[in-house]
Amino acid sequence: MAVAVIRTVILYIIIVFAVRVTGKRQIGQLSPTELVITLMLSELAVLPMEDMQKPLLAGVIPIFVLVIVEFFVSAVVLKSIRLRRILNGRPMPIIENGRINQQNMKKIKLSLDELAEELRILGSYDIETVSEAVMETNGQMSIVLKEDYEPLCKDNMKAKKEERKVPAVVISDGEIQKEGLLKAGIDKEQLKSILQKNGCSSAKEVFYMTSKAKNSYFIVKKEKKQ
């Protein structure tokens, strides 16, 4: 039992490490090679975990080999377009100039219901509004709406544009974020007075605080325990 617990912890650490170094994309975003590696990694980890007769190294060595192979394949795929096409396939146009490409749908075995579902997920409830739809190599669909249905943006309104910045997170769950303070351009004393102005005596009372621009702060106080 103790051996099983120790082995499980060791394999957990190794698998987390392996998944971390091979990339952190979600299942739906994995390329075919990454999906194969993920499936094989999980299978390999389970064997020495449940069968104590199997040496731990019988699972660990193949895991490391897979990680190395994945590194090698991704490095080669990055360099060679041809190999990338062979291993990952090509993006497949499903709707072209507003017309559904039925041949390509048959090729990737995509039903009309599935196409409608994908379009709904992307915010388009009517196939008629879509000009282009492409099934990407990672299995996700991307679309371009017809000009008439595109949402208004500043560019096509010729409106004045301002530079937009990602807000700096100054406090997260009661903890002051040093990087956020630096980004917001304030020190701890200034932060203290800002918090006091907003009815908080310390950072511990703040659940979330961001700074978008100078003197523009967004503060969410912690809910009091009942």
């Binding site: 103790a2 120790i6 040496p55």
Partner: peptide, 11 residues
């Protein structure tokens, strides 16, 4: 012996 967490058992 199988229960004792010796290094040999773990590996």
């Amino acid at each position: 012996d199988a229960e004792i967490p010796y290094l040999e058992n773990i590996l």
